[in-house]
């Protein structure tokens, strides 16, 4: 640069208006949406500002948790009931969704069956477990079986979608090989595709199980089995230290399951994606098969 700044012959650009306008619009939409929502929900400023204090009053009383009382009342068993519900529900979802996924995948299923099965997955995913349970409870009666069915059915939606995506990502070479030997469609799925997708699908199942543990805890709140009922009744009696114990045990179990399941899933994924040496990846896959029991 020289000491005297010579004006350029190129005129300076004006700042682009598009970005700014879009930002302004977004901000405006947020403000309008927010104000409209606040007026819909009967909130006064007083109540709004008072809420954290009110909440804190309650949360304070969760401590110390009444562990002895909780153990006497069998809260641990209730938490485990939630885990059982999630486990069986996940298995039901897995068993129902896997065959359906083959009918939904673009690369293996004909259009006439693919489209309705995909729509079925979407429809199922749209209905929360709680709503499914609301419908099931009059049929099965109150209890864990209603919750299990609700979780199983709802899981079909997500598990089916994920498995479909896994199938659509496979190498179709083995499938061609099966076709070339005169095998049927079922054989192509069983031997050409299933071995390829099984590890990743198993890790999806585990991931769904983690989600389902939380979901089944919630289902108890409407009487579909598990720890939720315990939370509701202790809150009703305003027995806050017992609530603290219920929450504490639930969080502990949820976090433990998350950690274990995530560790297994990491090993599964490591086995699939690490294909550097001919041996490496597969030793991981062996380890995964050992851990999950999904040995083929």
């Amino acid at each position: 640069m020289t000491a005297t700044h010579t004006p350029s012959t190129v005129s300076r650009p004006s700042p682009p208006s598009g970005v700014r306008r879009r930002r302004a619009l977004l901000a405006l939409a947020l403000v309008i949406g927010g104000v409209w929502s606040v007026t819909g929900i009967d909130v006064t400023l007083e109540r709004f500002l008072g809420a954290p204090g009110d909440a804190w009053d309650i949360f304070k009383r969760l401590w110390p948790p009444a562990m002895d009382e909780a153990l006497d009342r069998g809260v641990v068993g209730k938490v485990f009931e939630s885990v059982y519900i999630a486990w069986i529900g996940t298995i039901i979802g897995a068993v129902l969704s896997l065959p359906l996924a083959f009918l939904a995948a673009t690369n293996v299923a004909p259009r006439w069956i693919r489209v309705p099965v995909r729509q079925l997955f979407n429809a199922i995913r749209a209905v929360p477990e709680l709503i499914v349970a609301v419908i099931f409870i009059p049929i099965t009666g109150l209890g864990p079986w209603a919750g299990t069915l609700a979780i199983g059915l709802h899981s079909v939606g997500t598990l089916g979608k994920w498995a479909t995506e896994a199938i659509e990502g496979v190498d179709t070479g083995p499938l061609e090989a099966v076709e070339a030997t005169g095998g049927r469609w079922v054989s192509g799925m069983r031997w050409g595709i299933l071995p390829q997708i099984m590890p990743i699908v198993a890790s999806f199942w585990l991931f769904r199980f983690e989600i389902n543990v939380r979901a089944s805890a919630v289902l108890g709140m409407i009487g579909a089995g598990g720890v939720g009922a315990e939370l509701v009744s202790q809150l009703m009696f305003r027995n806050f230290s017992a609530v603290g114990a219920v929450l504490g045990i639930t969080v502990l179990v949820v976090l433990t399951i998350d950690t274990m399941s995530a560790a297994v899933r990491r090993r599964i994924i490591a086995g699939v994606t690490r294909t550097g040496g001919p041996d490496d990846g597969d030793r991981n896959a062996e380890a995964l098969a050992d851990l999950t029991g999904f040995r083929r």
Binding site: G173, P174, A177, T181, R184, R296
Partner: peptide, 25 residues
Amino acid sequence: GMIFQTFNLVNRTSVLNNVLMGRLG
């Protein structure tokens, strides 16, 4: 019988299972 440029084996299963796939017909 057909043999492919990319072998078209199922990598995640045993050699024996891959050969047995020839009997699927």
